[in-house]
């Protein structure tokens, strides 16, 4: 475990906490894409199939449980909580997220490191995570007033991805035989999707203005 990896995991954790804080205390999910949250729940379910069979460390297991638990509870809140679900921007959140799932599954069946069920599901989760933010980015673009917590949530998610890339660079130079093309390419694609958001996030921060993404 290097500092970039730990910082990446912590930013990921904070992003989830920020979102849960917004939903749990303000009882609002305005500006949050349920489509993206459902994709993340699917991503973690597919990726952590080995949670009880492949023990890596206590840290690893606890983090997996947190990401699984938080992603499914966020989906539950947005769909079924009687107050929270009223604030969901259903009419704005129209991205056809189902159309992302099938291509990712096909790609995982075609391009993987090993053709086993667990390995294909793991690869599928990487491809799906790479594009899972898209519905959220589209929703942000449509939202007139992006509140601070939603902006911070997306910023932290992007920061987590950027830190993971630094982690891979570090591991490449410090660990022999550390080559993972599938992880790297899908991770890079995922991070690039945040480039536009980052630009406007820093602009609004620099000019001390409210965040607003041009259509």
């Amino acid at each position: 475990m290097n500092i970039f990896r730990l910082a990446g995991d912590m930013t990921h954790l904070f992003s989830v906490l920020v979102l849960l804080l917004k939903i749990h205390t303000i009882k609002s999910c305005a500006g949050v894409s349920l489509k993206t949250q459902e994709l993340y729940a699917l991503v973690f379910a597919a990726r952590y199939l080995d949670i009880f069979t492949n023990y890596i460390s206590l840290y690893n297991t606890v983090m997996k449980l947190i990401f699984l638990g938080s992603s499914f509870s966020i989906v539950w809140y947005m769909r079924y909580h009687k107050i929270v679900r009223r604030s969901y921007d259903k009419d704005q959140d129209t991205f056809r997220h189902y159309f992302l799932i099938l291509p990712c599954l096909l790609l995982a069946l075609l391009i993987n490191e090993k053709f086993t069920f667990k390995e294909v599901m793991w690869t599928f989760s990487l491809y799906l995570e790479a594009v899972a933010i898209l519905p959220q980015l589209v929703l942000l673009q449509r939202t007139r007033n992006i509140d601070n917590l939603t902006g911070q949530y997306v910023f932290l998610l992007g920061a987590y991805r950027a830190l993971y890339i630094l982690n891979w660079v570090y591991r490449y130079f410090t660990e022999p035989h550390f080559v993972h093309w599938i992880t790297w390419v899908s991770g890079l694609v995922q991070t690039l999707l945040y480039a536009d958001f980052f630009y406007y996030y820093f602009q609004s921060w620099k000019n001390n203005q409210k965040l607003h993404l041009p259509a």
Binding site: R5, D9, H12, R47, D50, N54, I56, N60, M63, K64, F67, E113, K114, K118, E119, W122, Y164, N167, E175, P176, H177, F178, H180, T183
Partner: peptide, 10 residues
């Protein structure tokens, strides 16, 4: 050599 299916990242 580390095994390829040892996914130690989250």
């Amino acid at each position: 050599v580390e095994s390829d299916d040892d996914h130690d990242e989250l």
